[in-house]
């Protein structure tokens, strides 16, 4: 056994404490360390992800969606889209999930201090941004305005609906959401997330923007922000690629010169703007 050195591919068992339904296909799992197990405290930076191993099924990169100030617990929000995520959200309280990590770069929360923070999320993309929102609200005086723009396919696909409403009640916090298809009962906005920009008073020189969602959405939002005067260096995106190891050795998440698992997933738009336009890179 290679026990003399730390094996970065070895998961540690954590236990599901609570699992709650966000939407028909999306669940939030709160994990806690196994009894006496060497699980660690679970510290992370907003934007980092873990590799979650489902016994006998497979392992997936999943962003940490909980509060970074909360120790001894790790929270994930998972959308069931295939066999592994389906198995993951089928866990019950008291069952174990393998955890490796945290991995990757985080959102520039320290760099954003003193500035307005604009969070733009699409669908499940709000999950990796929720730790930023928690952090800003916890340290409200260190940041300027907090603006959350959220787009989902339909009202029933919106995650964290209650929290979105609660966040909107904080001072200097604006929450705008929109859906692609509203349905008859929907009284909110309909349209793509970029359509929300017309409601914004951006102060481009003192704003940091953080984006997560489908690549096409991030590309459009980043362009829109640039058109509204934000410097590329003040816009950050979280990228997704296939990942098998998260430690830069399986090769899968390569994107040009980058390994998204270790050089990302959060990148400055200034570094990747040209790459975003390269189809099949």
């Amino acid at each position: 056994m290679a026990n003399a050195e730390i094996d970065p591919m070895m998961p540690r068992p954590w236990v599901v404490r609570r699992i709650s339904k966000e939407t028909p296909d999306t669940f939030t799992l709160a994990l806690e360390p196994s009894d006496g197990g060497p699980s660690g405290r679970g510290g992370f930076q907003p934007g980092q992800f873990s590799m979650l191993w489902v016994f006998g099924v497979g392992e997936l990169p999943i962003s940490i969606s909980g509060d970074p100030a909360e120790e001894g617990s790790l929270t994930y929000t998972v959308r069931s889209v295939g066999p592994a995520t389906q198995a993951l959200v089928s866990h019950g309280a008291g069952q174990s999930v393998g955890v490796r990590g945290p991995f990757g770069t985080g959102w520039p929360v320290a760099g954003a201090e003193g500035k307005d923070v604009v969070v733009v999320a699409g669908g499940i993309g709000l999950a990796p941004l929720r730790p930023v929102i928690y952090h800003v609200l916890r340290h409200r005086d260190r940041f300027g305005r907090l603006v959350i723009l959220y787009g989902a396919r339909s009202p029933r696909d919106m995650i964290y609906r209650k929290e979105l409403a609660a966040w909107a009640r904080h001072k200097d916090t604006q929450v705008l959401s929109t859906v692609d298809y509203g349905g008859v009962a929907w009284r909110g906005r309909v349209g793509v997330v970029t359509s929300l920009f017309k409601y914004l008073r951006l102060q481009p020189a003192r704003t940091t923007a953080m984006l997560c969602g489908p690549e096409i959405m991030m590309r459009l939002v980043a362009r829109e922000l640039a058109a509204r005067g934000l410097a590329a260096g003040d816009v950050y995106l979280s990228m997704e690629r296939n990942m098998k190891c998260a430690v830069g050795s399986c090769g899968h998440c390569q994107w040009g010169p980058h390994f998204i698992c270790k050089d990302g997933p959060v990148f400055s738009y200034a570094h990747i703007a040209a790459m975003l336009d390269r189809y099949e890179l």
Partner: peptide, 8 residues
């Protein structure tokens, strides 16, 4: 529902 790692 609880697993153990047996060896590397």
């Amino acid at each position: 529902g609880l697993f153990r790692i047996l060896g590397g």
